[in-house]
Every structure is written in C-alpha cells, then in structure tokens.
Design a binder for these strands. Structure first.
Lengths: 194, 194
DNA sequence: GCCTAAATATGATTTCAATCATAAATAGTA
DNA sequence: TACTATTTATGATTGAAATCATATTTAGGC
C-alpha cells in the first residue's frame, strides 16, 4: 500500500522490485528516471565529497520515500545503498510529472510532502548545531531518530560512533536513559523538558 | 516583480510592506498566515533551542522567499529577523492554498520550488559535515554562500566568526583567496577541483 | 559449530575549533 | 566631530570530540 499522494498514480507508473543488502539502487550523477517507496528494509542516501568523506544525507525506512527531490533533476545527486534486503516500489518519473499537470490534488499533496521534508531538514540542521555530544544524542533520541543501528544513528546526527557510544553510556549512568539490551536504549520520559 | 510560481497568484493574495533593520517579521509559534518574498534587504530565519542557543536556519536575500515551508503548518517554527531595512511582498497563505487546488501549473511549480529547497538543504548538510574549518570555508565560498557579511557567513556554515576569520586569513596566505578589501575575499579559480 | 566480519564498547592520545581576550577599523549617530 | 557599537582581525588557552587502539559480543555464512 502506497502512502499519499503517490497512491493516486496510475498503475503504469508503479512497479515493484526487491534488492539485497549492500546493493546500490542508483548512483550519484546517473540519470534519474524514478523515485522510490520503501515497503520494507532500510536504504541510506550517501554523498561523497571531493576528499572522499561520505555524508549520510537521508535514511529511509519502511513506509518512507527516497529520491523524491530528484524528480526535477536530470541526474541523481547521491548514492542509494540498501542496508538490508529491501522490497521497494519504483515510481516512474515521467508519469509523476504528467500526473502533476493533470491532477492538482496530487500536486498539492506533493508540495505538502516536500514542505514537510524541508522542515525536517531544518530540524536536523538545528540538531546538528548542538555542540555537546551528550546533549545532541539525547535531543536526537527525543526527536525519534534512533532506529535500530547505533552506527547509522551516529552518522545521521553527525558524530563518530565512539562519541555516540560514550554519550549513551554517560546518559545511562546519569539515569537519563535505560539500557534495555546491547545497543538498545530507552529514554526516561520524566527527564524531558517541560 | 515576483518570481515563479508566485507571479501566477491573483492580486488579492499579494501585498507590499517594508520593515526596518532589526525588526522581527514573525516569531516562532505564532500563527502562520503568510509567506514572504524579499524585494530588497536581507532576512534571517532563526530557531532558538531549549538551551538558548540560536541556529541560523535560512538566510534570505533579494529575490528570495522565506517561510514557504510554513504553508502547511498552523504556526511558524522559527523567528524571521530583518538584518537591514527591507522591502517585502506578503503572500497570503489561504489564497495560495486555494490556487494550488485550482491551478495545477502553479502547484507543479511550487513542488519544484520545494524540491530545490530540499536539495539545497542537503548541500548545506553536506557542507557542514566538513570537519576542517579551512576546507569548509573554501567549500562554502565555492558554493557561493559568502554574501557580504562575514559573521553571518560564519553562522550559516556553522563556525564561529573567529574560526572563519582565521580560515580566510590562512587561505589568503596560501594563495587560495585574494583579499580585495576589509572583509572582502575572492576565490582563486585555478585552485578549484578539476 | 566454526570462522569471519561487523557492531558494540571503552581506553589513551591528539588535534583543532571554541572560548576568552584584546585591538584596530569602520559605521552609525547624536 | 566626537562617541559608541559593530565588524574585522588575531593571540592565548582550553576542552571536548576525533582519532587510534583494542576487546568483547553478536550475526551470518559455510
């Protein structure tokens, strides 16, 4: 089941595919022909700087989209790498652009979708501006960014995994988190700001 | 003259206003009724964290928009502060939402506008992930982010102004920049990556 | 079940931007 | 013009995260 507004698209625009862990779904600078909906699995969007350092630009989970912003771009501007076996829905770019012309409800919903993305990037920017690793990690957990993997979480919030592990350990010793298992932490809600 | 796609709006949606340097155009959490086009001047969008630190979320210059992403939000999620005397165009939110329903060309263009914003935030995120202050400053100049004021530039790229001045001085001494005046620097294009 | 690889975790050291301090140049203003 | 505030600029010190190193635990493949 596709999420709004893409559920309004004609059948010809939609096709299913699977990919295995580690697979590159598309690469930076390659021609952009589609965007994707993730049915299950996890996909990371990565950009490689001129010095070889990689930046995680987006983490897509089940029920999320990726590469939407490339709709208006002739080429992809990042790499998409499956972090595990994934089921995904391919949404053809030309069909989407056509639907936008014909269906104002669809384009209005698409605008809203992008506007929310803009806001989430602003929140991420705000989060990454927190200098203290300890505070940043807690704020990120409160923002619901810690899904599953600590290393990916660390990368998303702009810290090394070492600094993240240390912050998690410290917050746990301070009673701000409880450790429910290896790599599993839960926020003590009583500590949330009023 | 309004930039696309907002030039398609009916006259009733559009009104002009001016504001003076330092004026707060809107505040975080206040009701969102309009978005703005900047005819002349400069406006900063700032968010204040729970610890009091402020983050620059966006810098709008002549010919740019701000608060577009709040179109689908009942309240503003940041403060807008005029950095100098400004002329701006107020675009009524309800009119825009109505136009989106009726005019698919308008909504398609609006989607494209937001998609480009998403991409520019991704570029900013990538830029801010560059750890070395020296490299970050040069990358930011190459990305065309240095407009006018060094302190605002420093804030936009997530560095202190001291670190930014030092990086500018160092790059100048290394011949990567030329200093054309107090606070005025120009990139030596021969040094750009191939 | 064994072997390898990756994630989790923590210790030691270094590095570099933040911070604190200060000064000169400029802009604004009374 | 004199006075104040701000920006530009640089020096000294500090602190905290990056880096390097090394176990341990877990997951996955054969």
């Amino acid at each position: 089941m596709l999420a709004s507004p893409f559920d309004q698209l004609p059948g010809a625009a939609v096709s299913r595919r699977t990919c295995v862990a580690g697979e590159r779904i598309f690469s930076q600078a390659s021609r952009c022909r589609a965007l994707y909906y993730l049915v299950s699995g996890e996909v990371h969007l990565l950009r490689f700087g001129s010095d070889g350092t990689q930046v995680m630009i987006h983490r897509a989970f089940s029920g999320g989209f990726f590469a939407e912003a490339s709709l208006f771009s002739p080429t992809y501007h990042c790499d998409a790498v499956a972090q595990m076996d994934c089921q995904l829905v391919r949404l053809d770019k030309t069909h989407i652009l056509a639907e936008m012309k014909n269906n104002s409800t669809f384009s209005a919903a698409l605008s809203a979708h992008f506007a929310h993305q803009v806001q989430s990037y602003r929140r991420l920017l705000e989060l990454r501006a927190i200098k203290s690793a300890n505070e940043r990690v807690l704020a990120a957990i409160d923002a619901g960014l810690m899904g599953g993997n600590i290393k990916a979480f660390a990368s998303e919030i702009g810290l090394t995994h070492e600094a993240t592990y240390r912050a998690l350990a410290k917050a746990t010793s301070q009673g701000k988190l409880i450790k429910t298992g290896r790599g599993q932490y839960q926020r003590i809600v009583g500590q949330l700001p009023a």
